[in-house]
Nucleic acid binder design. Structure first.
Length: 182
DNA sequence: GTTTAGATCAACT
DNA sequence: GTTGATCTAAACG
């Protein structure tokens, strides 16, 4: 199992600050870069170049008119990154509600698009150093939940790799959906 | 050849 | 009703 999966597991239970909102990460997916056909870094281009750089930087990409946030974790030579799929809002929940509209609290940051919207993350945050305390950055571990692993959501390539990790029985975790053509 | 904007639709709530 | 490491086409360098 690639090293990136270990780093993905380490992110679950940690805090992520985003524009005045803080979320406890509950669900992530590991992307193995050059070893993973589903990764944007599988082909090295200017867009994916950031994943070939130093760890703890933010990679943001657009999808379906929304954004998705990734933490570049390394190992650098593998261009690995971890997609943040869901979290529980633990601070700034009023701001998150305002950004998301009338949805249940456990759904404020459930799903990649919703997560970035609740934390106000856009392509403007691309390349942010997540160790510097503004405006998007990683916080400390506040929880060490029981982790469950399974295949990633909605990926067509490498669809059976069990590189999705989430906190067991957590209501903020999104549901598994297999890609129709996978 | 790459990147971005918009759209689509099966499976979710 | 909502969502999304998909898909296509047009714009870019």
């Amino acid at each position: 199992m690639p090293e990136v999966t270990e780093r993905a597991r380490d992110l679950v239970g940690r805090l992520l600050h985003g524009h005045g909102v803080v979320a406890r990460i509950t669900e992530v997916e590991a992307y193995g870069g050059i070893e993973d056909p589903a990764s944007h870094a599988f082909v090295r281009t200017p867009r994916s170049e950031i994943m070939y750089g130093p760890p703890w930087r933010l990679y943001v990409y657009r999808i379906h008119g929304h954004h998705a946030a990734n933490v570049v974790t390394g190992p650098t030579e593998q261009a690995a990154a971890v997609l943040i799929r869901a979290g529980e809002i633990v601070e700034g929940i009023e701001v998150a509600r305002q950004r998301r509209g009338p949805v249940a609290d456990h759904a404020l940051a459930r799903g990649p698009g919703n997560f970035t919207k609740a934390l106000g993350i856009t392509s403007l945050d691309l390349g942010t150093d997540l160790l510097e305390p503004v405006p998007v950055y990683l916080g400390e571990r506040v929880d060490r939940p029981t982790l469950v692993a399974g295949p990633r959501v909605g990926v067509r390539l490498n669809a059976d790799a069990p590189w999705r990790f989430w906190a067991e029985d957590d209501p903020t975790v999104s549901a598994y959906r297999r890609h129709p053509r996978a």
